[in-house]
Amino acid sequence: FFSFGIVVFGIYKRMKGAIIVLLALLICALINAITYYDISLFAGFGIILLSMFYILSVRTKEQRLAYEESLVQSTRLRLELLKKNIQPHFLMNTLTSLIDWVEESPQKGVAFIEALAQEFKLFNQIENQTLIPIGQEIELCRSHLDIMEYRKEIKYHWEEENIDP
């Protein structure tokens, strides 16, 4: 009776699997009414185990689906981050500046290409990381400033204070 009370409370709270457990208990009660105690004990235990294994397999399937969905969402967020970091407007302006530098001064154009390649290399390194070390973040900022120096033809100054790596 105590088990029936717990299962009815579970159904009242709309817990998953409570109806299956109630059906298993009802079948166990029916078997107990029909057969001897020894047989009904083992048969009832077997039915309860089968119902618990079924509920466990359903929950495992739900967890696997949730995990796969989180992987898809993680991939989507990674692509969004990459798309955000490589904005078409920024890329077009950078390539236009690159054309000017290559035409005017091939050596500075090569340095500009190297700075751009360094920034994309850093983007590629941090793309899959959930936590980025401050050293990499600073290196990415410096790389971006190098690109902006070529694009805007302005000398930027980087200062660091009290950074704990």
Rank of each mutant, 00 (worst) to 15 (best):
R78Q: 14
L79V: 06
F123A: 04
F45T: 15
V58H: 08
L50E: 05
I99G: 02
Q87P: 06
T96S: 10
Q73C: 00
T60E: 13
Y54H: 12
V72L: 11
Y54R: 10
L65F: 10
E62H: 10
L65G: 05
N93G: 07
E62S: 14
D100T: 10
G46K: 05
R76G: 01
R76H: 11
L77C: 00
Y67I: 09
P88Q: 03
L98C: 08
V110R: 09
I113S: 08
A111P: 00
R76T: 05
T75F: 10
T60V: 12
G46T: 14
E62R: 11
S57Q: 06
Q107F: 05
L91R: 07
T60N: 13
S97Q: 07
L50W: 12
K83Q: 13
D100F: 08
T96R: 11
I113E: 02
D100K: 05
A117H: 04
I86E: 11
M52Q: 12
N124T: 14
E104H: 08
L116I: 03
L91T: 13
H89A: 08
L77D: 00
W101T: 06
K61W: 07
F53N: 14
F123D: 03
P106I: 11
E104V: 09
T94I: 03
K84G: 11
T96D: 12
E68N: 10
A111F: 03
E103Q: 02
G44V: 03
E104P: 00
M92L: 07
A115N: 02
K83A: 15
S74A: 12
I99M: 07
E119F: 05
L56S: 14
M92S: 03
M92R: 06
V72S: 09
R76L: 09
